[in-house]
Simulated scan of single mutants.
Amino acid sequence: MLIKIILVILGVLIVASVLMQQGKGSDLGSAFGGGSSDSLFGPLGPSNFLSQLTWGLTAIFFVLCLTLAYLSKEDLSLNVQEEQIEEVQEEPPVE
């Protein structure tokens, strides 16, 4: 349950970090001062910091997804041994 909550939070953070990055045109990253030298992330702009943050969050997200898939597989594995009773069917009489 905790992994699912962390995955949702990481998903929101990944989307936010992608939207804040400066693209080729005028997008949300430049609206926060991405092109100016006195921006929040320094004179190089948010590209280096935000791209590394996005890669890091994506790597953590990927590892947690694989972990959740592995744990879900173990939860769904049942060790139930049922005895199968074979029913003998009578053949219809041949006319």
Rank of each mutant, 00 (worst) to 15 (best):
E74C: 04
S17Q: 04
I6G: 05
P46I: 05
K24Y: 06
D75H: 02
E87C: 02
N79S: 14
G25M: 06
A31R: 13
S26N: 09
P93G: 01
M1R: 11
L2P: 15
M20F: 14
I14M: 14
V88S: 04
L50C: 08
Q89N: 09
P93C: 00
Q22L: 11
G29S: 03
A59T: 09
F49Y: 09
L78M: 08
E90Y: 05
S26R: 12
L19W: 03
E82I: 07
T58N: 03
V12Y: 06
L10F: 08
V94K: 15
P46V: 05
L78I: 04
G33H: 00
D27N: 15
P93A: 11
K73T: 06
P43S: 11
L7I: 06
E91A: 12
G34H: 01
F41E: 11
E82L: 12
Q21E: 13
W55H: 10
V8E: 03
P43R: 01
Q21D: 07
G56E: 05
S26T: 11
A31V: 14
L71W: 02
E95P: 13
F61N: 07
L66F: 11
L40H: 08
L71F: 00
G45V: 02
L64Y: 03
E83W: 01
E91L: 10
Y70L: 14
L53D: 07
I5R: 09
I6A: 13
I60H: 05
P46W: 03
L57N: 09
I14S: 09
V18R: 01
S30N: 12
S36E: 08
L10G: 10
L71H: 04
L66T: 13
S37V: 12
C65P: 04
T58W: 04
L28K: 04
L28E: 04
P93I: 12
G45T: 01
C65S: 15
L53G: 02
L10P: 03
I5N: 07
G25E: 14
E87R: 12
M1Q: 11
S17A: 12
S37H: 06
N79V: 10
I5H: 10
F41S: 13
G23F: 01
S77Y: 12
I5P: 00
L40G: 07
C65G: 15
Q22G: 07
D38T: 10
E90N: 11
T54R: 00
V94I: 13
L53E: 06
Q22T: 15
F32P: 13
Q89L: 10
L2F: 10
L76Q: 14
D27G: 08
E83Q: 06
V15S: 10
P43N: 00
